[in-house]
Every structure is written in structure tokens, then in C-alpha cells.
Nucleic acid binder design. Structure first.
Lengths: 249, 249
DNA sequence: CTCGCGCTTTTTGAATTCATAATGGCTGCA
DNA sequence: TGCAGCCATTATGAATTCAAAAAGCGCGAG
């Protein structure tokens, strides 16, 4: 199963399994987030409170606290007295998300272009090389994961923690659409070429160029995902209104 | 006491007092947020769990759930086994916040410049007029509040919910620094003149101009707040290291 | 007089309990 | 045979309870 790479932000999005945390809440939240982001539970699925309690080995109290937090982050929808469900992915929101992210990409470019340290660039070079390797292997899952890390790392290189965190939040939202990404295999090479140009601009510290490249890359990626999403919608709509399956109320 | 005007987003930031909500959690979260944003409890202050339970008339369970959510939003710091405190306002973060907000302001300008409806403009005109009136009265508190509403409303006029929500989150962060804003009274008139130009650009739907005006306004506001903050720091630093008062452990 | 140690009290984190709302199944009627 | 209404079951929301950690304090030694 794909693993979402994350940085260890204040409330510890980081690694998923057992961590040194003083409270169960702090252990459960990242694990739950991992489950939701990994898509282990499909969007719209009811969240089995009891099952997760057993799985995490905690009582309902900390689990429910975690659910509230995830609801605040938008990954879970709480229906009073009717339980929690995995928040449905609102396909119409993809555009707005990319549009917003574009503004941040531009700022990341402007800032990273003048603040990125040599070690930042070195690390990004390494990630870029790994992306190239994944492309060679045609390892789509690895590419997606590395791509996520690359942009996250770049956001950090901008030297603005608020920016990096906002950026990561949007990335997480997008991550939930990646079932569509699997459709955009054809863009892998194109995406990598864009990354090439991004790296050139970064190494040269040409901030305006870097900003523009990032904004374009973001726009093109967004458009590709939107197309993929449309294809999926087109593919599942024509099969008529399916009879509601039992678990779909 | 100043009231922070908010819109009713998914998780209901809205009005503060009793609301029609099915769960206590949904009632407590906005109230608690209001308390924290209003600065009723000073930054760094310990949050008296029992007291708030009594005040809200709920047991500890929903209150603690609300605290976790507020911690995720960054307004509260949870220290395991040592209780919750109002998150200290990190003065160093003000710059990054404004820097990030600048990117969003620009996008808001670009989008609102082409998407704002006539009724959007009418409402903003009304808010703008109210700002003028507050300026006349030299009603600083009202100006601050209206200014918040104005920019929020403008963000909505951009027609991108994700953008509006990200924007609001940053506004909330900034709101916590407004103890400094009280120092920047001299900028009121200047700020209003910038708003004048913003409105002109908005009415004319000249998107590039609007974007630039908003970005400038944001930058100037941020700089003014930074100066005010520096003045405050300078004013409180020289009084030597005070002896720790009892309630300050 | 000050500092350190141990005890008591308070507060916290989490499990459990309890009341209530929703769900599912059954019976009886059309 | 199909459906409407009622009851049993389950799941949820929130209060309560319980164990453990921290904070407060009082005593005694240096």
C-alpha cells in the first residue's frame, strides 16, 4: 500500500506506527490520518468505531477525539448520532485546490529562489534523481510518492514554516484524489521534464523563473488530474443508476 | 470585548453563543475558539478545564475534544499530563504569516477581479463605507473588525472556497496579534486610502491592478504590525527580568 | 534560613457507564 | 405479497469513574 510521506509538523503527522507519545490521542491521530490518506477506507465509507478501537488498542474516548480532529482537517464527516464517515472527495473542489496551491507554488518559487541553501538544493537534487529513476522503472507509485516529497521539500526550502504548512495541507487534500493520478500515467515523462526545468531554475537561483515554472507545473498537473477525473466520471456514469448496495445507505 | 466576525465554514466557526447543533462538541468548539481569539485568556495562560466546563455547562469529555481541535488549529498547546495552555503568540511567525497571506491576497485579487458579482461589489461597497465611518469616528476597534470582515468578504468574492478558507485561517492567526494593532492607530487613515484604491480596482474589475493593490496593502499592514510589535518588545524588554509571579510557572 | 525530600491534594488521560437516538427485523394488516 | 408500524438491538454522545501523573505543602536536615 502506498505510504504518504509527511514531515513531522507540530501535531506530528509523521510516521504512522508506534511512536513515542505521551498520550494515546497523539498516537491515534497520525495512524488514523494515515488510514484515511492511504484510502484504506474508501470515501464515503462508514468509519467503524469499535473496529478501530480494537485495532489501535484504545478505548472509544481517544479514538473519538481523533475523529473530531480529522473532521476539523476535513477528512472525516461527522453526522450527529449517525456516526462518522470518510469525507467524500468533492470532485468539484479539485480545481479550487490547485488554483489555491498555485498561489503558494509561486511564492515558494520566489522565496526558495533566494533562500534555498546549498544543502537544500543538494537534497532536492537527490530527490530529483530518485524521480528520474522511478520514471525509468516506470514505477508510478514511487514516482507519485517521491513527487510529493520533492514538492514538500521545496516548500521547506522557502524558509517559511507557515507557507510550508499551508502547502502541506493542500497536498494532503490532493492526495485523496490520487486514485485519479493512476490514470495519468502518460504525464509522468512530461512531469519529469517540468521538474528538470524547475531544478535548473533552482540551481541558478533565478527566482522569477522558478516561480513561473512551479506555477505552470502546478497548473498542468491540475489540468491533467481534472481530465483524469472527468474520464473516470464518464466511465462510471453511463453504467446507469446502479441498484443501491446494502452498505451504501 | 471585541468580537471576531467569522463566516460559517464547514466546521462552524460562526457565531459564538448558543447555536442549533446536535452535539455539544459543535457548540463548545466555536465558543472556545471565540474565547481564544478574543484574547479573553492571555497567551500562555493555563486553560482551566473545570472552569470552562462549568461555564459551558458540559462535562469534560466534549470540552477536551474541543481542546484537541483547537490544538490542531494551533490556538492551544497541549502539554501531556500538564494541561492545556493558550498557545503563545510566536512573534517571529508574524512575518511568515503575512508573507504567505500575500500570495493569497494576490490570487484573491486576480480572481475577484474577474469573478466578483455585482452584489459582491455592492456588499463590499457597504463594508467600505462602514470602514470610512469608523475612521471618521476614530473607532479603532470597529475599524479592525470591519477590516477583517471586508477582507474576508473579498476572499469570498474570489469564488474559491478553498482559497477563502485558507485565507480565513491565516486571518485568525493574525487576529491573535491584534494587541499590537492597537498600537498602529496612525495607520488607520493610510489603510483606508489603500482600501479606496482597492475598491476602485475592484469596481473597474482590473484584476492585475487589484491583485497588486491587495498585495501591497498586505505588505504594508504586515510591516506596520511588525513595527508595532517591535515597539512593544522594546518597551517590555528593558524592564529587566521580572521576578516570576506565582501564576507564571 | 534555605534547600531538599516525601506526603497529600489536585488535575489529567483514558476507560467505563449510562441515556438516547438510530437501525434492523418482525409482526400484522391490507 | 407488500408494506406500515412497533419492538429489540446496536451505536452514538456525553457523563462519570478510575488510575496515574503533576503540583502544592510541610517537615526536617544542613
Amino acid at each position: 500500500m502506498e505510504r504518504l510521506p509527511t514531515t513531522d509538523t507540530s501535531d506530528a503527522t509523521g510516521f504512522d506506527d508506534e511512536r513515542s507519545a505521551a498520550t494515546l490521542h497523539d498516537i491515534v491521530v497520525p495512524q488514523l490520518r494515515a488510514i484515511l490518506l492511504d484510502g484504506e477506507l474508501p470515501a464515503g465509507a462508514r468509519i467503524p468505531e469499535a473496529e478501530l478501537c480494537a485495532r489501535f488498542g484504545v478505548s472509544r474516548t481517544p479514538l473519538r477525539e481523533a475523529l473530531k480532529v480529522m473532521a476539523a482537517e476535513g477528512f472525516v464527516t461527522l453526522r450527529p448520532n449517525r456516526g462518522a464517515v470518510v469525507a467524500p472527495v468533492d470532485r468539484g473542489a479539485l480545481g479550487p485546490i490547485f488554483e489555491t496551491k498555485g498561489a503558494l507554488e509561486r511564492l515558494i518559487g520566489l522565496l526558495a529562489g533566494e533562500r534555498a541553501s546549498d544543502s537544500d538544493v543538494a537534497e532536492l537534487d537527490a530527490l530529483h534523481a530518485a524521480l528520474g529513476a522511478a520514471l525509468q522503472r516506470d514505477d508510478h507509485a514511487a514516482y507519485t510518492r517521491l513527487n510529493f516529497s520533492f514538492h514538500q521539500r521545496l516548500a521547506q526550502a522557502a524558509g517559511n514554516p507557515v507557507l510550508a504548512q499551508s502547502y502541506e495541507a493542500l497536498q494532503h487534500k490532493i492526495w485523496r484524489y490520487r486514485f485519479a493520478v493512476n490514470e495519468v500515467t502518460d504525464r509522468l515523462a512530461e512531469s519529469y521534464r517540468e521538474h528538470e526545468r524547475i531544478m535548473i531554475a533552482l540551481r541558478a537561483r533565478t527566482r522569477l523563473d522558478l516561480a513561473e515554472r512551479l506555477e505552470d507545473h502546478n497548473r498542468l498537473t491540475g489540468e491533467a488530474m481534472a481530465r483524469a477525473l472527468a474520464r473516470i466520471s464518464a466511465a462510471e456514469a453511463p453504467q446507469g443508476r446502479r441498484r443501491k448496495t446494502k452498505r451504501e445507505a
